[in-house]
Design a protein around this nucleic acid. Structure first.
Lengths: 211, 211
DNA sequence: GTCTATATCCAGATAGAC
DNA sequence: GTCTATCTGGATATAGAC
């Protein structure tokens, strides 16, 4: 029942992941995947029947590795003002390790929106705990009246966008200078977390929120 | 003198824009573009020598129509606290009209980062005026100590991400319900602008609270 | 300028030897 | 299981009539 994970199958999957993520489904070539895996094209079809099936395997892997972990972090039991920096830090670390995953997922889902529904259902994701936490903080008067879903989207946006937008941001704002852009990214954790917290918190002396 | 813009060439460009933006360079088919334009495949090659050249035309169009306008808005002479809602509103309107442009640009630039440099230079973009304005406000004590570039990225992120992430956001947060997602988007202008302003402003007096 | 027909190439997929 | 060789379809691109 143990699976040796240096099998041909896993070698193929690793190679396919690299190529699909770099080029997308349409741009990827079975030949390139075979080369990358150091094997023959025919073997790809022996292990996975078609390019579609191989892609599906890679995509689901990337998705369930990335998206659920994110929502789990969002739903953990930390207090809100600790959770936000924790979430941002955690997620930006993950993105730094796999900077092309979000672009890959977003692009392929854009091409085939139907694909998500199935995966999502099977992974049982939902941001309910976080939304409740936001409501609680609002009632307590510690944060201003913000919609929880808008807050989630804002947090995701601030973490993900620098990675998917890297080429254009680097070009427009840093004259294409890679080092400057990396310095920018390295301060991102703190900047993003501060930005979010300042955006939602109510200074206790500012006003009285219980009507 | 004036060019009638219902020429075959412009018809082709319109069709190509739709197809390339929906499918990306690799996913697009010359046949589909020809069908969409109501003409023959051979005509595409008559007007534009190759798929590459046709794509380049579409891409540059989309880019210069979208990105520079954005930076011009960012550099206009409004006071900062008016400029932010103006920018967000303006930009989200543009995105609502062309929701797939950002994904298209980001994806194609990811595949070919070198392409940007040339276009950027020729359009003379830079966010200098905005960065100075941020410094001025910081010195005046009206906003907290935030890096201007981080602020720009945050503004872009908050506007763009809901559009590029639509499929996954809709599925995870609204159970795939399109109407709910659209309601979410319709409140986005105000939410995003409020979020940004709250994130950066420093209250001069304890009791400036507006509804 | 616009069409039909065709050339050329290349990618995904299969057959079959070992 | 892994390879070489090959089939087949489809996509870009061209030739040439009108």
């Amino acid at each position: 029942m143990n699976k040796q994970d240096t099998t041909t199958e896993s070698t193929i999957l690793d190679a396919a992941r690299r190529v699909f993520i770099a080029k997308g489904f349409e741009g990827a070539r079975m030949q390139e995947i075979a080369n990358e895996a150091g094997i023959n094209k025919a073997l790809l079809h022996y292990y996975f029947r078609s390019k579609d099936k191989l892609f599906e395997a890679v995509f689901v892997d990337a998705f369930v590795q990335f998206v659920p972990g994110l929502l789990i972090t969002l739903n953990n039991p930390l207090p809100l003002f600790e959770k936000i920096p924790y979430f941002v830090s955690h997620y930006i670390d993950a993105l730094s390790t796999n900077p092309f995953i979000p672009g890959f997922i977003l692009h392929e889902l854009g091409n085939n929106p139907g694909r998500v529904a199935k995966i999502i259902r099977s992974s049982g994701l939902n941001p309910g705990q976080f939304l409740e936490q936001v409501e609680t903080e609002k009632r307590a008067g510690t944060i201003r009246d913000i919609d929880g879903r808008q807050l989630i989207v804002n947090m995701l946006a601030l973490c993900i966008f620098p990675f998917v937008g890297k080429p254009i941001l680097k070009a427009v704002m840093f004259s294409g200078n890679e080092e400057e852009f990396n310095r920018f990214l390295s301060t991102r954790k703190k900047e993003a977390a501060d930005f979010i917290i300042n955006a939602i918190k109510i200074d206790q002396n500012e006003n009285i929120s219980e009507a």
